Simulated assay, not measured.
Amino acid sequence: MKQEPPLVRDLFPELVAELATLLEEEGEHWLAICVWDVRMVAECGCGDDFCQSIRTAEHTPGQPYGPGHRCVPLLPATGDLILDVVNGRIMYIEILDRPPLRQRVQP
């Protein structure tokens, strides 16, 4: 049986709380709820030192998302947070020019 990827909220609770708050402020109430249940499928993998982006769903890198895709730019105090959303599902969390994410220590 394949194990599901970890929830982003379990790894980076402060990030998810910030995303939920920012989404509410933008009037994105549904996404503010959904962000609590996204999973960390993979890191971006680009290798840029300013990027900490997270893939939250399977998708071929470099390929367009296609119909139903929209970008949701948020207004954090530092750096950039931008979500790629397809048909109401958060596919990617772009995290740029921000302090290093602090991962919750797992018991």
Score class of each variant (00 low, 15 high):
residue 95 I to F: 11
residue 68 G to K: 10
residue 8 V to I: 07
residue 28 E to D: 13
residue 104 R to C: 08
residue 103 Q to E: 12
residue 96 L to D: 04
residue 85 V to N: 04
residue 83 L to Y: 01
residue 34 C to H: 09
residue 104 R to A: 05
residue 70 R to D: 05
residue 10 D to R: 12
residue 60 T to A: 06
residue 27 G to R: 05
residue 67 P to G: 09
residue 87 N to S: 15
residue 98 R to P: 04
residue 57 A to T: 03
residue 89 R to V: 04
residue 76 P to F: 04
residue 14 E to Y: 00
residue 56 T to S: 10
residue 62 G to L: 04
residue 30 W to C: 03
residue 75 L to K: 09
residue 5 P to M: 05
residue 57 A to F: 01
residue 78 T to R: 08
residue 52 Q to A: 10
residue 79 G to A: 06
residue 46 C to F: 08
residue 73 P to V: 05
residue 36 W to N: 09
residue 27 G to N: 08
residue 59 H to N: 05
residue 81 L to M: 05
residue 89 R to T: 05
residue 30 W to Q: 07
residue 102 R to A: 13
residue 12 F to E: 01
residue 25 E to P: 02
residue 41 V to N: 15
residue 16 V to A: 08
residue 49 D to Q: 07
residue 46 C to K: 14
residue 60 T to H: 02
residue 91 M to N: 03
residue 77 A to P: 14
residue 106 Q to M: 11
residue 27 G to H: 07
residue 84 D to T: 00
residue 88 G to K: 06
residue 55 R to G: 13
residue 7 L to V: 08
residue 82 I to C: 12
residue 90 I to S: 01
residue 61 P to W: 06
residue 6 P to D: 11
residue 49 D to G: 07
residue 31 L to M: 13
residue 68 G to N: 08
residue 15 L to T: 03
residue 3 Q to L: 08
residue 1 M to K: 14
residue 104 R to Q: 10
residue 106 Q to D: 15
residue 20 A to L: 12
residue 56 T to L: 10
residue 14 E to L: 03
residue 25 E to Q: 08
residue 89 R to K: 10
residue 89 R to Q: 12
residue 35 V to D: 01
residue 71 C to I: 00
residue 11 L to M: 13
residue 17 A to C: 13
residue 51 C to E: 11
residue 75 L to H: 09
residue 100 P to T: 07
residue 1 M to G: 10
residue 107 P to S: 14
residue 53 S to E: 12
residue 28 E to F: 03
residue 59 H to F: 03
residue 80 D to R: 13
residue 70 R to P: 03
residue 79 G to E: 15
residue 3 Q to G: 15
residue 8 V to Q: 02
residue 61 P to C: 06
residue 37 D to H: 06
residue 26 E to R: 07
residue 5 P to S: 11
residue 32 A to W: 00
residue 105 V to G: 12
residue 4 E to T: 08
residue 3 Q to E: 11
residue 22 L to A: 04
residue 68 G to R: 07
residue 56 T to P: 11
residue 49 D to Y: 12
residue 101 L to N: 02
residue 73 P to K: 09
residue 39 R to G: 02
residue 98 R to G: 04
residue 73 P to D: 11
residue 107 P to A: 13
residue 60 T to R: 06
residue 93 I to V: 09
residue 23 L to W: 03
residue 86 V to N: 09
residue 15 L to P: 09
residue 34 C to E: 10
residue 8 V to M: 02
residue 29 H to F: 00
residue 44 C to H: 10
residue 60 T to S: 03
residue 51 C to H: 14
residue 59 H to T: 02
residue 40 M to R: 14
residue 99 P to V: 00
